Each structure stands twice: as structure tokens, then as C-alpha cells.
Amino acid sequence: MPHAERGMRIGLFGGSFNPPHAGHRLVAEIARRRLGLDRVWWIVTPGNPLKDHGHLRPLAERLAAVRAVAEGPHMAVTAFEAAHRIRYSADTVDLLLLRRPAVRFVWIMGADSLASFHRWQDWRRIAASLPIAVVDRPGASLAALSAPMARFLDRSRVAERDAASLPFRDPPAWVFLHGPRSPASSTSIRTGSALTS
């Protein structure tokens, strides 16, 4: 688990990153800047329980690829979930809040992930445990904003102009962030049909 000082604002950006790409980097950078985060932790997961693992590259390979994409002093790359044998994001959140209670964590996800967030194990517990930042992705805006989580937490949505206050808000609280978007996706990169720059 990366180092964190008391009071730091840290974004948690989890995924299988199979492979990581410019779109991931853009999501992390938009969230970092707009939320005023000290760091973004890229949490490279052993594997997404909702996805087919047939094309999943080995964890060490994905870690190396993420380190190449997530360069810079404000980015940290970790695979602590594998060391702790964690399968679900809700358990990751529980562990982080237990180990780093004085850190202001924010969960970061692309809008494409929000559209299926209601299928995640204990998604309501995640939303009740820490603020969430959703970053727009090409073709995902409408599906994300009409998703079960967005409707369930409609009254907890923070205006985009107040995004910098999100790390200081008690959950549930979430914001939808707009900004530059990249057409890259891990699926299309694996099939050789995407722009990767």
C-alpha cells in the first residue's frame, strides 16, 4: 500500500487495466486536478469478478504497463489487493479506511463503470463509505447518468462547480466531471481496433 500522510486527499482508481491506455490517464488527471487531490493511487486488481479473465494479462505485466502510463509525482501504482487476497472493491475500501483512517479518500471511476456500478458487490456500501468522482467517457454519459446508482444517489450529487469540495464531504456524495475525452478502450486495444495515443 502506498505511503499516505494524515489529511492527504487521495483518489482511488482501480481496474484490471488490461491494458492501461491514454483514456485511463486522462480520467486520473481530470480527477486529480478538478478535486485538488494530492495523489491518485492506481489499484491494479487481480481481476474483475464481472469480466471474462480469458484475455487477462499476468498481474506483473499489467503493473509494469500501468507504471509506464501513470508516470509523475502525483501518481502511485499498487497491487495490494492481490497481497491481501481481496476480490471485491467494497473490501478494498474497508481495508483502506481501517488502515488509513486520517486520509481523505475519493473513489474514481469512468462513466462507463458507473453504468454497471449497481452490479458490483456491495455497491451501496462503497457509496456510503467514501465520496465518488465519475469522469465522463466517450459514449457513456447518458447511460451513466440514468444508471441505478445515479438515480439512487441523485440527492447526494455535488454540482460540478463544487468538485474541489468532494474530498471533504461526508458520504454519500458524488460528482460527475466533464473534460477532454479519449476514444481509447482496453477492449478495443486488445482487439487491435483502437487509437492508443
Rank of each mutant, 00 (worst) to 15 (best):
M1P: 09
P2S: 09
H3L: 11
G7C: 08
M8Y: 05
G11K: 02
L12T: 02
G15N: 06
S16T: 14
N18Q: 12
G23H: 03
E29Q: 11
I30A: 03
R32G: 00
R34M: 05
R34E: 13
L35A: 01
G36R: 09
L37A: 04
R39T: 04
R39L: 09
R39N: 04
W41P: 03
W41E: 02
P46Y: 12
D52L: 09
D52A: 09
H53M: 12
H53A: 15
L56P: 05
L59S: 07
R62D: 08
A65I: 07
V69L: 10
A70Q: 01
E71Y: 02
G72C: 04
P73Q: 13
H74P: 01
F80W: 12
F80M: 10
E81N: 10
A82W: 08
R85A: 15
I86P: 04
R87W: 11
R87F: 12
S89M: 14
L98C: 13
R99F: 05
R99T: 11
R100F: 13
P101S: 05
P101A: 07
V103I: 08
R104A: 03
W107Q: 00
S116Y: 11
F117S: 00
R119H: 12
R125T: 09
A127R: 00
A128T: 06
S129M: 06
P131W: 00
A133I: 03
V134F: 06
R137W: 04
P138T: 11
P138M: 12
G139K: 11
G139L: 14
A140D: 10
A140E: 09
A143Y: 04
A144V: 06
S146Q: 15
A150W: 02
F152Y: 12
L153Q: 06
R157Q: 14
E160C: 10
R161P: 11
D162V: 10
A163P: 05
L166D: 01
R169W: 10
D170R: 15
D170Q: 15
F176K: 06
S182F: 09
S186C: 13
T187P: 03
S188A: 15
R190W: 11
G192K: 07
S193C: 15
